[in-house]
Amino acid sequence: MSWKVTVFAARPVIEAALVAHEDAWDWDHEIVLSGREVAEDQPEDWVLEAWLDRKPSKADNVAITALFADTKPKLIAEELPETDWLVASQEGLEPIRAGRFHVHTPDHPAVDEPGVFDFAIPASQAFGTGHHATTAGCLAMLTHMKAQGLVVRNCADIGTGTGLLAFAALSLWPRTLAIASDIDAVCVNVVEDNAGANGVSMGARRGELVMTVADGMAHPVLEARGPYDLILANILAGPLVHLAPDFGKALVPGGHLLLAGLLETQEAAVRAACRKAGLRLAARMVNGDWSILWMRKRGR
């Protein structure tokens, strides 16, 4: 049995609720939240959707309502048919081109073009098919970083989801040591399956990928494999702020950090946290409402 709670409001109201959700460290992670515009021709009319695997309790409704500060939104609860909504939402996605990468679901053909890396990433229970603006922005920024002459010998992808960004880094720097992690254990099988389908070797040697389950940087394997030339983190603004000091410590002097998952309105807070951690902005791009930041640690 699954349920959805819906709130309709103006775009600033929904965006503020999403920011409040990221800052709510006691949030029940069994309540999955997202926000979007109602329709392409109604860009200022947004909807917040909360998915639960149970009928919403009074406490659930109070937690969702609390995201809206001084306003009291109308909550619309409905029971949903037994469907994997994440997979269903990704069915029929068209292929994308971002930088040197062509990403598609398996129902679309691969491309064979010089200098283009092709990845087939199926819809799954993990984030990162490449179609979201943050993931596509990271692929474009990785391409830019490579074009600027960046050399990577040791990298980590934190919050990897499907593993796509780790695969992309290994494509651009095929002799790098690489590790990917996610807080969600379901991602282990997802990453291993996607690696097998895309010719990415799993293992601890150069050119191979190690996968582990970790909360942020707090894991013995992540600590043992560091320090890193490059850390990738396409997660959320709140965790990025919280993890900035750990990222700074885990990078070599002059090391690089690629951040995404933050709205442009959240960029100032993330950059401020990075500055305190000894990181400065090397480049930025905006894809839709989302910022993608290339940060660099001070040298010795």
Results as ranks from 00 to 15, higher is better:
52 L>D: 09
225 R>A: 15
37 E>S: 11
195 A>I: 07
150 L>N: 06
232 L>K: 01
29 H>C: 07
99 G>S: 07
124 S>F: 07
136 A>Y: 06
291 S>E: 03
48 L>F: 09
31 I>A: 14
80 L>W: 00
258 L>D: 05
63 A>F: 03
213 V>A: 03
229 D>Y: 04
5 V>K: 05
93 L>I: 13
164 L>Y: 04
80 L>Y: 05
138 C>A: 12
130 G>H: 08
155 C>G: 15
234 N>R: 02
261 G>N: 10
251 L>H: 01
161 G>A: 13
121 I>N: 11
139 L>A: 04
237 A>M: 13
166 A>N: 03
261 G>D: 10
283 A>F: 00
107 D>Q: 09
179 I>F: 11
281 L>P: 00
49 E>S: 12
102 H>T: 02
33 L>V: 15
219 H>T: 06
8 F>W: 06
161 G>D: 12
280 R>S: 14
143 T>K: 03
112 D>I: 04
295 M>I: 01
157 D>S: 12
16 A>F: 05
214 A>R: 03
201 S>F: 03
164 L>I: 15
21 H>I: 09
133 A>R: 09
211 M>N: 08
164 L>W: 10
271 R>D: 09
170 L>V: 07
126 A>I: 09
64 I>W: 09
129 T>I: 08
192 E>P: 01
175 R>L: 14
284 R>I: 05
67 L>K: 11
141 M>P: 09
139 L>G: 08
170 L>C: 12
74 K>C: 05
93 L>P: 03
16 A>D: 14
250 A>L: 02
268 A>T: 14
187 C>M: 04
58 K>V: 11
128 G>L: 12
26 D>C: 05
157 D>K: 06
287 N>Y: 01
273 A>Y: 00
95 P>W: 09
129 T>K: 03
191 V>D: 02
96 I>Y: 02
237 A>F: 06
192 E>L: 12
253 P>M: 10
78 E>T: 14
247 F>V: 04
38 V>L: 14
207 G>Q: 10
274 C>N: 08
248 G>S: 07
86 L>V: 14
194 N>P: 02
106 P>H: 06
90 Q>K: 15
99 G>P: 04
38 V>A: 15
9 A>W: 06
204 A>G: 13
45 D>T: 11
66 A>G: 13
208 E>C: 11
190 V>E: 02
9 A>G: 05
150 L>W: 10
177 L>Q: 15
206 R>G: 15
116 V>Y: 00
77 A>E: 13
158 I>C: 03
184 D>G: 10
12 P>K: 10
232 L>W: 05
255 G>M: 00
152 V>F: 07
216 G>Y: 01
101 F>T: 04
253 P>W: 02
256 H>F: 00
137 G>C: 10
201 S>E: 15
43 P>W: 10
59 A>E: 13
187 C>E: 02
2 S>V: 02
66 A>M: 08
112 D>C: 01
